[in-house]
Design a protein around this nucleic acid. Structure first.
Lengths: 223, 223
DNA sequence: CATTTTTAATAGTAATACTATTATATTTGC
DNA sequence: GCAAATATAATAGTATTACTATTAAAAATG
C-alpha cells in the first residue's frame, strides 16, 4: 500500500475520551469491530466486549456514551479513511473523467487489504459499513445528530465526488443524488450478492458491481 | 382510486395467526403501523401497542412471533400491494418502454393516498418501508429467513420489473442490479431529502426523485 | 512520592422481548 | 339454547440489555 503511517482524524464530539489516546481505547475499537462483525450490531454489547478484552463494561462507557455512538464513531472513521484515500488517488490527475472514475472505483470496490498500520482492520470495518451503517442514521434522532455533525464525514465525501461530476458535466442537475445512490447502491449490491442473490446479477469473484456503477455514472451524466 | 375491494395475500409462515382473520388482528396491524411510524422501530414494543389498542402484550404474541416478524409481515404486505398496483398499471400496455416507465414511476414515487379499503394505511406504511425496512434484512439471520421465503415478495417485484428492462433491451447484463438500485435508491433519497438534505438535490415539493431515476434507467439500459 | 487520572469491580435500575399459566369472554357446532 | 372449543385478557415471571453510580485499586504524571 502506498500509505505511510496515517492518522485518521475523528472529531471529539464522537467520543467521551479519545480511544486513540490509550491502549484500552485502541483495544475497544479493535475488538469492537471484530465483535460487531461476528455477532451483528444487535447482539453486540459492551459487556461482551469488556470480557473479550479483559476489561469492564463501565470502562468502555468512559470512551463511548453508548453503543449507538460507537457505531457512529466507526462510520466516521471509515469515511475519513475513504476521504484520505480519495484525495490521494485523485491527486495530480488532470482529467476530470479520470478523477471521477477513480472515485467511483474507490466507492464501489470491496476493501480487500488491511494495511495494518493502525489498530483498525479496514477489511472488517468495510463489512460492518455494508451490513450495519444504515442503522446509524435510521433512527428517530437523525436530525438532532445531524446538527451535531454526526454524518458530516460522509457528506464531505459525497461533496468531493460531486465536484468531480460537475467537472465532467457542469450542467448535471443531480450530482449528490447520483453519488449517494452509487455509494448506498454498491453497499446494497455487495450485501445482496452474499445474502440475497436473487436481487443482483453478480457472478462469484467477478467485479460486476464496480463495472455496473462505472457505466451507470458515465451514461447518466454525459449527454 | 381505481381499485375495488382488494385483498393482499400474505403467506401463512409470516404470522402465527392470520391478523386479517379477526378484529384484534386487524387492530394490531392498523395501530402497529401507526406506532412504528410514531416511535420508530426500536422504541416500538408489543406492550405499548397492547395498551394503545386496549389489549394485551401476550395476545399480540398469538399473532406474531416477534417484533421482527411483525416488521417482516409489513414489508411483505407492502410489496404484495406494490405488485398488485404494478400488474394493474402495466396491464394492456403494448410498449415495453411505457411499461418500464410506469413501473419506475410506481417504485420511486411517494405514496400519497390511502385508498381506505383496508385497515392498512398505505401512506404511513410507505414511510415505514422507507425508514425501517432495511432493518428487516440487515440481521444475522437473513440467509435462514430468506430460505423460509421472508423476502420473496420483494424479489418477485424486482423480477417483474427486470422483465420489462429486458423487454426494452434484451442484452442488458444487470437488470436486477439496476432495479434494486433504483428501489433502494429512491427510498434513501426520500429519507435523505427529509432528514439529511446534504446528500440529495431535492427541491421541496418537486418530483426530482422520480425524474432522476427515470432518466437514469433510460440512459443506462439504452445504448 | 503525592496527586491526579484511569481502570476494574460491584451493584443497581428500568425497560425489553419474550414465555407460561390461568381466568374470563366469545364464538361455534349441534 | 347450551356445551365445548377457541380467543383474549390478566398476571406473573425470566434473562438480558443498556445503561448509571459508587468505590477501590492500579497506573501515570508532575
Amino acid at each position: 500500500m502506498e500509505e505511510t503511517q496515517i492518522h485518521i482524524a475523528t472529531d471529539s464530539f464522537l467520543f467521551c475520551k479519545d480511544p486513540e489516546s490509550s491502549d484500552l481505547g485502541r483495544r475497544i475499537v479493535e475488538y469492537g469491530i471484530e465483535m460487531i462483525h461476528e455477532l451483528g450490531y444487535e447482539a453486540f454489547t459492551f459487556k461482551k466486549l469488556g470480557s473479550r478484552i479483559n476489561s469492564n463494561e463501565s470502562s468502555i462507557y468512559r470512551y463511548f456514551e453508548s453503543k449507538h455512538s460507537f457505531l457512529v464513531y466507526l462510520v466516521n472513521w471509515y469515511w475519513s479513511w475513504i476521504e484520505h484515500k480519495l484525495v490521494f488517488a485523485t491527486a495530480n490527475i488532470e482529467s476530470e473523467e479520470e478523477k471521477l472514475e477513480k472515485a467511483i472505483q474507490l466507492l464501489t470496490e470491496e476493501v480487500k487489504e488491511d494495511n495494518n498500520f493502525t489498530f483498525i482492520n479496514e477489511v472488517t470495518l468495510n463489512k460492518i459499513i455494508i451490513a450495519e451503517s444504515s442503522k446509524a442514521y435510521h433512527t428517530k434522532e437523525v436530525e438532532k445528530e445531524n446538527k451535531k455533525g454526526f454524518y458530516k464525514t460522509y457528506t464531505r465525501v459525497v461533496d468531493r465526488v460531486t465536484e468531480f461530476v460537475l467537472g465532467v458535466n457542469p450542467n448535471f442537475k443531480y450530482p449528490h443524488m447520483l453519488i449517494s445512490t452509487i455509494i448506498e447502491g454498491a453497499h446494497h449490491q455487495r450485501y445482496f450478492s452474499k445474502h440475497l442473490p436473487a436481487l443482483t446479477d453478480c457472478e462469484e469473484g467477478k467485479n460486476n458491481i464496480v463495472e455496473f456503477y462505472q457505466k451507470l455514472v458515465t451514461d447518466t451524466i454525459k449527454r
